[in-house]
Write a protein that binds this DNA or RNA. Structure first.
Ligand SMILES: [Mn+2]
Ligand SMILES: [Mn+2]
Ligand SMILES: [Zn+2]
Ligand SMILES: [Zn+2]
Lengths: 147, 147
DNA sequence: TTGAAAATGAAAGTCGATTTCATTTAGGCG
DNA sequence: CGCCTAAATGAAATCGACTTTCATTTTCAA
């Protein structure tokens, strides 16, 4: 990793090392705050902006990309070989992934037909995860139940 | 329209009337600022927050919905009978729509398989529109051309 | 070893979205 | 008609996630 960064003209620092490592340990869909919290547990002295800048760097060198789901929080997602879509629970904010090869094929076609040069496909299903559906049902059975 | 709102418990005001009318005249993908500018041309005295609140109201009563493309600007899109996806030009921010019946079918299947209750599908192609592709080519033929 | 370039941390700034609050207005009711 | 209350309005303040600034420290190639 140190070598990898150096060849791209970036330096390694203890903060950077800790931030990179923590990011990959956290896994998918990491927000700045989540990563900041984790990093803070390990080194009280690291600043928020350093975490933020390193997350940007991870993107710049192609190891992650920003995901914007419209809830005001930018998440950082490790780049994967195969493209994927997101199931986003509007209630608990849980994110699941699903394969989209077939869909991307269709979309590429659509773009081609319109002389549009696609850079990135965004395929999302917003709704309620199973847990939150059940939670909603439970609440109905207890809450302001009439007659 | 006045009746329509009244039955839902909202009042009609001159500001509201002007804002609603202007919104539907502007057409698709209207931002608060765009609508505010248009409304301002017709009535200097209307405040930004009134425009914003009425845009929210238009959504609440089901005549439009928010579209978030990740560029930091919320746009308001008239609801249409058939679902559509968006082609979003990263350079000039132009938006085009395309039909997504087939894709939505596949996505509904995906959601069903995972016990996820879909509320809304988001299908976007981000990239460069034809104009911006050509602009990029032009710049290459002039700019820092070597040899 | 050393010096230029890069990185860091704290604080300030940005900017769209949202809320607060004092005031005005709509419209149902008698 | 007036009256009264809930709703609406406009200005200004606030929010909150991000982004930048700036003084200082650190890395690392030469
Ligand atoms: Mn993902
Ligand atoms: Mn649209
Ligand atoms: Zn959930
Ligand atoms: Zn364009």
């Amino acid at each position: 990793m140190k070598e990898f960064l150096r060849t791209k003209g970036f330096k390694m620092t203890p903060q950077r090392e800790l931030i990179f490592r923590s990011f990959f340990e956290l896994g998918e869909h990491v927000s700045v705050d989540e990563l900041y919290d984790k990093v803070r547990d390990l080194d009280q002295s690291i600043g928020y902006s350093t975490v933020w800048r390193n997350l940007k760097l991870i993107c710049k060198v192609g190891l992650a990309e920003e995901v914007n789901l419209g809830d005001g929080i930018t998440r950082y997602d490790r780049v994967t070989k195969v493209p994927h879509g997101h199931l986003f629970c509007l209630s608990c904010k849980k994110l699941e992934e699903f394969p989209v090869e077939q869909l991307v094929g269709i979309l590429a076609q659509t773009a081609g037909d319109r002389d549009f040069s696609p850079e990135h496909f965004k395929i999302e299903i917003h709704g309620l995860c199973n847990d939150c559906q059940n939670k909603a049902i439970d609440e109905n059975n207890n809450g302001a139940d009439d007659e």
